[in-house]
Design a protein around this nucleic acid. Sequence first.
DNA 1: AAAAGATGTAAAAACGTTTTGATTTTGCGA
DNA 2: TCGCAAAATCAAAACGTTTTTACATCTTTT
Lengths: 341, 341
Amino acid sequence: MKSTIKEVAKEAGVSISTVSRVINGRDRVSKSTLNKVQQAIEKLHFHPDHVARTMINKKTQTIGLIVPQLSNEFWSLMSEVIQDELWSNGYITLICSTDNSDKENAYLRMYIDRRVDGIIYCASQEDPTGMQDQMEMLKQSGIPLVTLDKSAPGVSSVVGDHLLGSLNAVEHLIGRGYRQIAYIGGPAVSIEREFGYRKALMMHGLNANEAIIHLVKGQSFADGYGALKAVLASGESFDALFCGNDLMAFGAIKAMEEAGMSVPDDVAVVGYDDIFSASLFKPALTTVRQPIADIGKELVSLLIQSMEQDTDGRSARKIIVPTELIVRESSGALKNEMSLL
Amino acid sequence: MKSTIKEVAKEAGVSISTVSRVINGRDRVSKSTLNKVQQAIEKLHFHPDHVARTMINKKTQTIGLIVPQLSNEFWSLMSEVIQDELWSNGYITLICSTDNSDKENAYLRMYIDRRVDGIIYCASQEDPTGMQDQMEMLKQSGIPLVTLDKSAPGVSSVVGDHLLGSLNAVEHLIGRGYRQIAYIGGPAVSIEREFGYRKALMMHGLNANEAIIHLVKGQSFADGYGALKAVLASGESFDALFCGNDLMAFGAIKAMEEAGMSVPDDVAVVGYDDIFSASLFKPALTTVRQPIADIGKELVSLLIQSMEQDTDGRSARKIIVPTELIVRESSGALKNEMSLL
DNA sequence: AAAAGATGTAAAAACGTTTTGATTTTGCGA
DNA sequence: TCGCAAAATCAAAACGTTTTTACATCTTTT
């Protein structure tokens, strides 16, 4: 059923090495033997075994990808872009979704044992101590690594400009006259986004110390919903809300509507990411766009560079991708006549 | 940097085979050698090379998954469920998104060459002639295969009950008094859904021959938008719309709103799949729920069965999963007093 | 016409495991 | 102390390729 190079050699009446050279076009082969071999290959439906090949040339042509949650619109698009881009470059993609669980280590271990040629790692947690072990493991394995939104010494990374993105978003709200701006976020990048939020408040003379901030475990719709419930329960009043991502914004808006509040009339809302649903949502969500396709391509290109030069991670690069504020309905109109400017 | 079993053997002062037995717990090893070997393994950070293992025992512990479009909410959730379920069973997942292009063959070829232990194939096209070649290739390779929404002789499959699902959906519209029900759909399963649509019309004495049906190439938001534009351009009037999936429904609704039509007041809409966004959408979308998690688990369980018995596909099974109509706002209220019953 | 250089092909080593016989060591009753 | 089964270990073959080395054969050159 499954033929080997040996059988092809016998069929063609030549040696194994000759067949190998025909397959790989490595060396010169005479016209007549070329024909014989090609016919034998055709006849036996021979396809070189990739596993055996890997044994020799140490290349699996496989990349391991780790994302926090594949079912999340942001990550599924990111994964699609990455898979597609890798395929164009001759690689196939192993995808694992950590789903906020502690599978990351096991996934990485598995990737290493399988000798993937490279790893694209979108960490879900900003946990520096936990990361240490994993990074050590990866470094020891010598497998090229590229991370998203996560920096480590010696590894290339692509990071969104969360600080500036958030800053712009919050300034937008301030510019429209909102003064009591709350923030809800999850783990990881949400921390950086919180910085941008705080900075914007401070830059415009608002007291960041008494800002309304609520952080939760995840980044999903349910997390946003829960976060806003918690804010409401605290009894603090606010006229605008900045969210760690779009999905959380959707959840928060749901919670507000259930509480009889209207967006943007009672509360203006800004999200982050600009996933496709953001434009579909009603009210259409004002949000900070992250260029997902660009990020994915950048990640792949960076990884391929790392793999080619193989300079032991000495020349790690860090690419910062800019964001763009997309203004839609959810952030309302000017709240009063006075613009800040 | 990367240690081998040979080095471990030398370090522990035993033979390679002894180390192997320790690793796999295959045979009895004396307490003292066990300790020596374990310490050596520890010291050298040894992890057995999965590729070399594969050479021997012919198992990659890897499954190849093919989905039409990973960035589509339906497929990303499906992929997540499948990956997770496979991981629980000791398998890792290669994911490829065909994106309506002709990469399917290349993907399959790649999977076969890599000796994946099994393939889960969610075909994007209902093209029977094109499928022939691929199925032949797969059969020759002897790799266990499970398909979704696609039947082929000798292969196990999970199929949604599209006929009944659509039938119920359309009957729901009819029951509410709508009479001019249009249908828009894409390729593949949309065909079966069209049958259900037609059947419902006929069962209730509506003329299926002059039904308004518009089919397009894809299944995305843009496709739904385009399809509805085309329907509008045709000038035919309708008071309800059944869509091949939720995403298309969203697109269609967008197009209708742009044309000044209101949903559900002017036109009632029903989608298919019940992706997460369907409940978020405004108006909340009435739709036919497919139990994605169940389907994914069923696919995995079926595949694992195929792999274990390895009976050459003789005992192919076909599982039909039922759907559930989820009634929300988009299908409006009773259009007039007369219910059909 | 012999030495030197191309050219085409074959044999064998290597990749890192598992598995199979074969061989050594151990334990224990006679 | 000897013998022998059982237990523990080892050496070698196998998995299916690629690559290196070596050996013929056939052209050139001197």
